[in-house]
């Protein structure tokens, strides 16, 4: 495999597009030579950081340690703490343009081969006129892709690229308002799928996808594989 030498500096400071970064990350995992380059650039990035080091308030150390103790146990988290965690995870507030484009292109290609081509065409059109937010994948299902589209008129929907749900299971969409998850639609996944949300969104609502038993559930029982925040 060719080495992504030219991309390593940008990769090291997080300046690559999401897709490019994934490709470089996959390479770096198995290539010691490139990893050494990345570490050298990371060291340079760290030197920049050191140059702005500052004295935090002295109470901070105890606060950090106390908060960690209170949050135990780290392992074997309950689903509930998984949900609490969801609210703390940084959610991208902007759309990596390349990701949206890639999804829309695959959506358009997919649409041609389907009976409900009209619906797909409408979904693609909505991307152009609506507000679009990318959904962040969790570490467990890093290959999952999704965007939330909020068209100017009509129901918000998700464009998803996730694996087919296993037998007896379904992907379920949630709108989380405050701390309350509200069931918002089902999809069996497999290839590119459109999932129209069954409830309207408010600004600041979090949208998430979890794997649930077929037919859906009233409350999420697994950690989200995709999350994003409506604007």
């Amino acid at each position: 495999m060719t080495h992504p030498t030219d991309e390593l500096a940008a990769y090291s400071i997080g300046a690559l597009e999401e897709r490019e970064a994934e490709i470089v990350a996959a390479h770096v995992r198995t290539c010691e030579e490139c990893r050494a380059e990345v570490e050298a650039y990371q060291e340079t990035a760290w030197r920049l950081a050191e140059a702005v080091a500052g004295e935090p308030p002295s109470r901070m150390r105890a606060a950090v340690v106390e908060r960690a103790r209170a949050a135990r146990p780290v392992r074997g988290r309950t689903v509930l703490s998984g949900w609490a965690e969801l609210f703390r995870r940084p959610i991208p507030a902007f759309v990596p343009a390349a990701l949206v484009l890639a999804l829309v292109v695959s959506l358009a290609a997919y649409a041609g081969s389907r009976r409900d081509a009209d619906r797909f065409a409408a979904a693609v059109a909505g991307v152009a006129s609506g507000r679009v937010v990318s959904l962040a994948p969790s570490a467990e299902l890093a290959q999952a892709r999704g965007v939330l589209v909020q068209p100017p008129n009509g129901a918000p929907y998700l464009i998803l690229d996730i694996p087919a749900a296993p037998p007896g299971k379904t992907w379920e969409a949630w709108v989380i308002r405050g701390e309350q998850p509200i069931a918002a639609g089902l999809s069996d996944g497999s290839g590119v799928a459109i999932l129209t949300l069954t409830i309207p969104l408010r600004s600041g609502d979090v949208v998430a996808i979890t794997l649930e038993r077929a037919g859906g559930t009233g409350l999420p029982t697994s950690n989200p594989v995709l999350t994003g925040k409506s604007t």
């Binding site: 050191e50 500052g54 901070m60 150390r61 950090v64 103790r69």
Partner: peptide, 17 residues
């Protein structure tokens, strides 16, 4: 959690800065 405190001792100033 003590290990987290030690990591903080090493890098807290940089993170904060």
């Amino acid at each position: 959690a003590d290990a987290l405190g030690e990591l903080y001792d090493r890098y807290g100033r940089v993170v904060f800065g």
